[in-house]
Nucleic acid binder design. Structure first.
Lengths: 189, 189
DNA sequence: TGGCAGCGTTCGTCAAACCGAATTTAAGGA
DNA sequence: TCCTTAAATTCGGTTTGACGAACGCTGCCA
C-alpha cells in the first residue's frame, strides 16, 4: 500500500511473463494448463504472448490452476544477482540449548521471495530452463534425498541441507528417495 | 478454510466490496471515480453491484484512480495468524507427478526476507518480544512437534504444517518433541 | 521415410464487457 | 408542494475477449 501504486509496466505484459514463468515452474504445458483452468488454449496462448486483456474470471482460473494467488500474476517480479551458499553455518544455540538458529540467507531489500513446498518422487527429473536473469533459488531438504542445482553441477542433499543457486541457468530437481519434500524459496527481484 | 492465498472466495464479490469500500474511503462519487478512471459509470455501477466480470485493464484503471495497488482490490484482508496444514494445500502436479509444488506465501515487492533454520528441544520456551511493526514470520515445521505463534494464540504444528503470523506482537516457540527443526522466514519491510 | 502424437499459434464466430444516453431515485431550497 | 440538481441505475449499440476448429511445427518410432 505504501508502495508505488502506479506500476510503470503495463499489467498485461507483467501478466504475460508471470504466466509463462509460473507455468514453467509448475512443469505444465500450455495445453495442459488451459485444460486444468477450463479455458481455451487459444486464449492462454494470446495471454502469454501479451496480446489480449483477460477478464478477472479468466485470470482467476489460471491462478487456481497454477496454485498461486491472483496478485502473484499481476505484480511484477524483479531480478537481482545474489547467491548465498550455506549448510556449513553452525547453529548458534542459546544457554539451555533448547533453541538455535542459523541464518541461511539474508534478503536484499527490494527483492521478492516466494515460499513453496515441493514434493518429488524418484524416477523423474525435473528440468527447468533458465528463467529471469538474477533469480535465485533456495532449497532446504526436509525429507528424503534430493539432487538439485545447475545442470552441470547438481548437489546431492541430505535432510536438513541447504543449497542456493542462480535460477538463470538451466537447473534440475531429482528425487533420490520416495517421499522427498523440500522447502523452496524463489527469489526474483 | 482460511486459504487466503490460494483459493479465496469468489473474486467478483471481493472486487465489488473492495471497490465500494475504497471509493468510500476516497470520498469519491461513482460518477467522479468513473470519470477519473476513464471508464463508463455504468460499468462501474455494475462492478460495484457484483454483476459483471471486469477486464484487467478496467480494474487497473480503477486501482490507479483510487490510488491503491491492484492487489488490494482482489485480495481479501488477511487474518493475523494463518495456518496451512500439511496436505491441505493443493499441490499442482505435472504429468508424471514426480514433481509438485505449492505456493505457501507470496512475497510483497519491497519486502525483505531472511531465511533461517531452527532447532529446538523440549523443555524450554523461546520468547520473542515484538519487533518492527509490519514484520511477518513464516514457519514450516520439518521435524518433531512445535508450538508457535502469538503468546495469546499459539498454534501446534505437525511436520509439514505451515504457519505465518505477525511478528510485531509478542510470540513464542516451544518444542514439544525432541529433535524439532523448522524453517523460518522472517519478513520485514 | 512416412506416419503419428502432442504442443503451440492463427482464424472465424458468438457471447459479453464496455460505452453513451435516457431514466429513475434522492436531497435540498424557495 | 414543486422544482432543481446531482447521483446512481437501467437500456440499446458497439467493441472485444473467449471459444472451438483448423493449421504448422517438432520429436518419436516403426
Amino acid at each position: 500500500m505504501s508502495e508505488t501504486e502506479n506500476t510503470p509496466a503495463a499489467p498485461l505484459e507483467t501478466i504475460a511473463s508471470s504466466l509463462r514463468r509460473e507455468r514453467d515452474r509448475a512443469g505444465l504445458t500450455l495445453t495442459e494448463l488451459a485444460k486444468r483452468a477450463g479455458i481455451a488454449k487459444s486464449t492462454l496462448s494470446q495471454l502469454e504472448s501479451g496480446t489480449g486483456n483477460p477478464s478477472v474470471e479468466t485470470l482467476w482460473a489460471l491462478g487456481v490452476a497454477l496454485g498461486v494467488p491472483f496478485s502473484r500474476l499481476v505484480d511484477p517480479p524483479t531480478p537481482q544477482v545474489r547467491v548465498v551458499r550455506a549448510g556449513q553455518v553452525p547453529i548458534v544455540r542459546s544457554e539451555q540449548s533448547t533453541y538455535g538458529a542459523a541464518l541461511l540467507s539474508s534478503g536484499e531489500s527490494g527483492a521478492r521471495r516466494d515460499l513453496y513446498v515441493l514434493e518429488l518422487e524418484p524416477g523423474g527429473v525435473r528440468h527447468a530452463d533458465a528463467h529471469i536473469p538474477g533469480s535465485v533459488e533456495h532449497v532446504i531438504l526436509t525429507a528424503g534425498r534430493l539432487l538439485a542445482g545447475p545442470e552441470d553441477s547438481p548437489v546431492e542433499l541430505e535432510v536438513g541441507d541447504y543449497v542456493s543457486f542462480s535460477g538463470d541457468v538451466p537447473h534440475r530437481y531429482e528425487a533420490l528417495a520416495p517421499g522427498t519434500t523440500a522447502v523452496l524459496v524463489m527469489e526474483h527481484r
